[in-house]
Design a protein around this nucleic acid. Structure first.
Lengths: 345, 345
DNA sequence: GTTAGCACTCAGGTAATCAGAGTGCCAAAC
DNA sequence: GTTTGGCACTCTGATTACCTGAGTGCTAAC
């Protein structure tokens, strides 16, 4: 599929017009504002070619043409020259990203930012990275037989949990238990630690010292159904999608909202985007999900210290302002990565 | 406004019919299945009376009648005999309420439960109660100059935060600081503690011992912009509302979704419900919020140990199945209270 | 290759018509 | 006096017919 330069500019003009108007675009309209000086008739010829190539189509005989998914694809891949965002605008965005030290809040803030600027739905994935064990502490609570277990990971994330014990431990016992644990497992991935603990269940002999047994027992409770769940997703601005006439069919909207709630499909897309390590755009059915068939998804991974740690993006109707969305997603990804790397270390 | 018994049963029949059908109800329909043996003409007479009282109205001359907000009010207050839920059904609900020890998960679970059973939107408020201080611990992290502050409240909730210090503290210093703090503030409300800390800023003289100064400084960081925010709200099942033909106007839906996101209106309603200490029902504009004008809200507070600690409910169209919703909300409130009070104590 | 002209198609709006559902009211029946 | 049957009236919603405007494809001329 090779397009003449003229066909290209025509296609570009048509798509841009359609994106801004939402109406099928006819030859006359294009002839007047398309930039190139051609009569409607000529334009009709070119449009017929474009239709043969599957880039545009007409909803019915006597309406103008609208881009197909393939048309958008070509537009996005080869016609769209994304202009870099000017610095003042970028600073404005950066200011919106409130960082209060809590990474989850930061993600939420990024998601709202995306949805507010684009007027579409913003999504941000918070990956639960496989972290390494750093330190565990057992803290006796003043009420009987309860111990607070605090787990600090190598990245400085803190998990805690109150567990019930069969008897009251002395502070000394607790310290001893913690020491054993910290010596043994420091630096090991959490997954390993967990596996070990479950294995320990079996080989607990009488031979093992009490401190070890105590530590094992308490730590095991800590790890039991600790949210080992998958990564988490923040979605915001779904309500924006209600505004969009393209998604007129309420049934489609419903499916979309269900998808947002289920989040499985989103996770999959986000995951793909993680791997891709650069911006990805899914147009229409390209995402492979029925509910997203009339939607496009623009996603970009964000990095901290050169490593991809998560991904974010925007979901909207196929007819979205790709130009704007792409820059905003790109910039937000960079800003988010930047904000995260200023996190204490 | 006093209704004859006949008018009452008629109103009841009409509303029940309208709730299940969604169509304006005419005299013929009512004559056939209304329970009472009357001709359409008679029924028309009674209906005219009901209309004069403002309990029902007709969308236009030749449609049947539909209940007004006032009509629903009377229906709910005096006509509806809510039957208690049967125990097997109740157990089924109880099973849905998964309690994994995390109260927030429990609330989310309750909200989903509400929305799934009623097919409407469920809301649960998680009040940030004013808690009392119980215990604070400072834990030296292996990386330089970072201390993990752990705060345990009287109710056993744990907050933690990593703070940066100007120099490295020895374990002994940390213990000393914690001891000072625990001795001084044990049992005091968190608000007091916070106030004290901010005050301490001023009267920090050289006279004060080092341990005290250290403790104050670290604890102050802990309390700084600790989410002192208001209570939190969990909303789920909003997507259910997309299904409902009553809210046909997409603009209204949008407003509703915006309201859910903003949550301010909800908080206010929930707050009212907290005070009321028994179930409350807002029909149509009774809630006082524009966005909820075509909605009803059914809320009930839930209690732990006889004290109201939060409130939950359902939002749906004015034309909702009040009978079902009321029992479900009631039962869920009791279940949630029950589940919460099995929480360790 | 480009353009003007022309016949053709189709969606969407407007108006007219019609059936169905329901009401209000009056007079007769109970 | 309450209830009922009957009848004229009203209004919605569906169906149909019609018309206009926008747009196309094709052909022939430039």
């Amino acid at each position: 599929m090779v397009l003449t330069p003229r066909a290209e500019t025509l296609l570009k003009a048509l798509i841009e017009r359609y994106i801004s108007d939402g109406q099928p675009v006819g030859s006359r309209t294009l002839s007047k504002q398309g930039g190139l000086e051609l009569s409607p008739a000529t334009i009709r010829n070119v449009m017929a070619d474009l239709e043969d190539l599957g880039l545009i189509s007409s909803p019915h005989t006597s309406a103008g043409r609208i881009p197909t998914a393939l048309g958008y694809r070509v537009f996005v891949d080869t016609l769209l020259k994304v202009r870099p965002m000017d610095t003042p605008e970028m600073h404005r965005l950066a200011d919106e990203l409130a960082y209060d030290g809590n990474p989850v809040h930061l993600m939420e803030s990024a998601s709202t930012l995306l949805s507010q600027v684009t007027k579409l739905a913003g999504i941000v994935m918070i990956p639960r990275q496989e972290e390494a064990f750093r330190q565990i502490e057992f803290l006796s609570l003043s009420s009987a037989n309860r111990v607070l277990v605090i787990l600090v990971t190598a990245k400085g994330r803190v998990h805690n949990r109150v567990i019930h014990t069969d008897h009251r431990y002395s502070p000394a016992e607790l310290v001893e238990a913690a020491n054993y644990f910290n010596d043994t497992y420091s630096g090991r991935p959490l997954g390993d630690v967990k596996r070990d603990l479950l294995g320990a269940l079996q080989r607990d002999g009488d031979a093992v010292q009490r401190a070890v047994r105590n530590a094992t027992m308490m730590a095991r409770q800590m790890f039991t159904d600790e949210e080992s769940a998958g990564p988490d997703v923040v979605v915001s601005g779904e309500a924006n999608l209600l505004n969009i006439p393209d998604l007129g069919d309420i049934e489609k909207l419903r499916k979309l909202f269900d998808t947002f709630n289920a989040k499985r499909a989103l996770l999959h897309l986000l995951d793909q985007s993680m791997r891709a390590a650069s911006m990805q755009i899914f147009i229409g059915q390209e995402s492979g999900y029925q509910a997203l068939e009339e939607c496009s998804v623009v996603m970009a991974p964000y990095q901290v210290g050169g490593r991809v740690v998560g991904t974010l993006g925007v979901v909207g109707p196929t007819r979205m302002d790709y130009d704007q969305v792409i820059t905003v997603v790109d910039v937000t990804a960079r800003l988010l990565g930047g904000a995260l790397s200023t996190e204490g270390h």
